[in-house]
Design a protein around this nucleic acid. Structure first.
Lengths: 329, 329
DNA sequence: ATGAAAGCGCTAACAC
DNA sequence: GTGTTAGCGCTTTCAT
């Protein structure tokens, strides 16, 4: 185990100074061609790779990018992670994934460990903080907030979704189809996204000339179970005829509640999902949903990471909003 | 940017030696209690974290675990990655995800970069090598092969799926339902998994007393497009009445081909999927499929990583096989 | 209880 | 074109 291949071990092996080896393997010009060849060949034979630790210690950037997601089961997060991973591969970034389960303690722990390895950036979907107002520390690396924004998190940039129009249109669409009891299940008001989506739903009701019914509005820390339970209650006891989902996990949870009851979306109840998992188009003839620009989000995010290194000051790049689309099926 | 908090900077700040700081922050007993308190408080204030690079350079294990997957869109891989990430979180491992797109060059690149950061282990779904017979180098870290095995890859352990019975039973089940033209789309014979699944299909045919028809058997590097195209051909021109899928991506591809044609699995054609995405139960009344023990696979894998560190020699832990189940819907 | 020195792998800055 | 030195942050060893 002690036999790690280093420039020194190669140097000794070749009977030269380790600096010559270093120069040769770093493409420095001042090395005799024969020497360089010998070194390169030997290095290849021995399977030499530069120690990332040593480079980091000298102050070189690590190329490590952290990605903090609530989970990765959700097809939206999975697609995002996939796109990010591909983009990172292309840009020679190392992607470190941490799952936070939307818990602020796990989130802070993940950020600390990213600081330990001197990650250059953390891309994160902030967890709801439940009003605890704790300062989140992430000194030394760039932080990009994804989808949601949390106050007290000193992020240098944010990549967000503009779903106002889509959600508003969803309400209108159901209203035009004759629905009067249109419910909304959203992510609660700890987070920017939760507030915005609820506002969009309300704007839709207003436009449709419908009154707001507190019984038909649910907001909580978003999760599959939460979506399932609220949707179940809405159809079991509140006679909702339409449900609009304001979150990817909520959407799958709500769908699950309906399917478990043998209800077909589109026939027995109108459901507008959130996010567009590949299978939504196959559910009972197609599920209406708010499509999110996942790949664009990932691209913007990586662009943000790269921009940072090149021309951070030039374009002020603070918050980018990408538009969601209502898909009617 | 130069203001990283180190034991030295804390020491200077407090007017003491950096060694005392080191001892205090490493829980060494020989530190005066007052001194220790002052140091700990100051470290917390400044947001000090130990440099992973420095520790790695001293030979401490990095706690970095690499995960190499073809992609992470696939619900099977996503669920596996999710389970691994959670298990890593619990065990204080850092999970680095690399997507290989099933390409051997990307795979090798990922392994090299894991060696650079001195990862303690790489968990990988080996890419098909197309017979190139290249030696894959991963010196210095433990390698765990997942699902598939490739010769010429010096892995210390393998966590595999035993799906022989499930696939065999799938054929029998279709045969008993009266099907005579039962097709198989599998992953080709580069990989152990491809060979095994094809063998299971053949065993099923034999048991059912059906003859093998080369036109109904497809084997290739597994992918969504591949599954979709072969399934399309099978129903369009080969009059297959039943299709058995031997791979997660293949399964989704095949399903897609059928849905695109407006065919309902179970009514217009018998499809046995591979893997159990959450939505299979909702597809036209429920899709029959081979359920994979994802969480158990992840647990076994992490157990393998931990075992290694504690009692590697004790239990010989080489290959573990976990059983798949046929789900009839 | 505290400090000083050395070394892990690497490269910038000097010799020569 | 090549070699020597020093230092990045940390802990182990050996003083004090």
């Amino acid at each position: 185990m002690s036999n790690r291949v280093t420039i020194k071990s190669i140097a000794k092996d070749l009977g030269i100074s380790h600096m010559t080896v270093s120069r040769a393997l770093s493409g420095h010009p001042n090395v005799h061609n024969d020497t360089r060849d010998r070194i390169e060949r030997r290095a290849r034979e021995l399977g030499y790779v530069k120690s990332a630790a040593a480079r980091a210690m000298r102050g070189e950037a690590t190329q490590i990018v952290g990605l903090l997601l609530p989970n990765i089961l959700n097809e939206f997060y999975a697609r995002f992670a996939n796109a990010m991973a591909l983009a990172c591969e292309r840009n020679s970034f190392h992607l470190m994934i941490h799952l936070t389960s939307d818990e602020i303690a796990l989130e802070q722990r993940a950020l600390d460990r990213l600081r330990e390895v001197q990650a250059i950036a953390a891309v994160m979907v902030p967890a709801p903080d439940g009003g605890s107002k704790q300062e989140t520390k992430a000194v030394g690396m760039k932080v990009v907030q994804l989808i949601r924004q949390r106050p007290g998190l000193d992020a240098q940039a944010a990549v967000l979704i503009d779903d106002h129009t889509a959600i508003c249109d969803a309400v209108l669409h159901l209203a035009q189809a004759g629905h009067r009891k249109i419910a909304f299940i959203g992510g609660g008001c700890d987070l920017s996204s939760g507030r915005d989506r609820l506002a969009a739903y309300r704007a839709g009701l207003l436009k449709a000339g419908l009154a707001e019914d507190p019984e038909l509005i649910h907001g909580d820390a978003p999760s599959f179970a939460m979506g399932r339970d609220h949707a179940g209650e809405l159809v079991d006891t509140k006679q909702a005829t339409g449900i609009i989902c304001g979150g990817v996990e909520i959407s799958n949870g709500a769908l699950s509640a309906l399917m478990d009851r043998g209800m077909q979306p589109g026939r027995d109840i109108a459901l507008v999902g959130y996010g567009d998992p590949s299978f939504y188009k196959w559910i009972s003839g197609g599920l209406a949903t708010v499509r999110l620009p996942v790949e664009e989000l990932a691209e913007e995010t990586v662009a943000e990471l790269i921009t940072d290194r090149e021309t951070r000051a030039k374009r002020g790049s603070k918050r980018r909003k990408l538009e969601a689309t209502l898909i009617i099926r």
